[in-house]
């Protein structure tokens, strides 16, 4: 669990926009964030109504779009910042973070 840090922007951090929940997760899959994990990620994200944004370095993607996620080109060891906002945002964040950590 040490690889993941979750913080609720609603509760504290000044630097975050209100309403956003965010978590940073490290890619552990040997082949990086390739088609299958990206498809699984988007599929889970689409089950929730919350907005999902994924950042990798300076690149930003829509968590519900496989093409957008693949465009990040995230490799093993890269850190992804997941941000969610809206209905069940925290639950959405947890489900997606868990998926990335699982590899």
């Amino acid at each position: 669990m040490s690889k993941k840090s979750t913080k609720s922007c609603v509760r504290k951090t000044k630097s975050c926009n209100p309403g956003w929940h965010s978590a940073t997760v490290k890619i552990v899959h040997r082949e990086g964030f390739h088609t299958r994990p990206a498809a699984q990620f988007a599929e889970i994200a689409q089950r929730f109504a919350a907005e999902v944004e994924v950042r990798c370095g300076r690149k930003k993607g829509d968590g519900k779009s496989i093409l957008s996620l693949l465009a990040l080109g995230a490799e093993r060891g890269d850190k992804l910042t997941l941000r969610t906002r809206g209905p069940r945002a925290e639950e959405t964040l947890k489900a997606l973070g868990k998926l990335i950590q699982k590899g």
């Binding site: 093409l67 957008s68 465009a71 990040l72 995230a74 093993r76």
Partner: peptide, 17 residues
């Protein structure tokens, strides 16, 4: 050649979106 593969996927996806 995981890295090249991933980079090409990213390149294509950036274009195709």
């Amino acid at each position: 050649t995981t890295r090249e593969h991933l980079k090409m996927l990213a390149r294509l996806s950036r274009m195709l979106k």
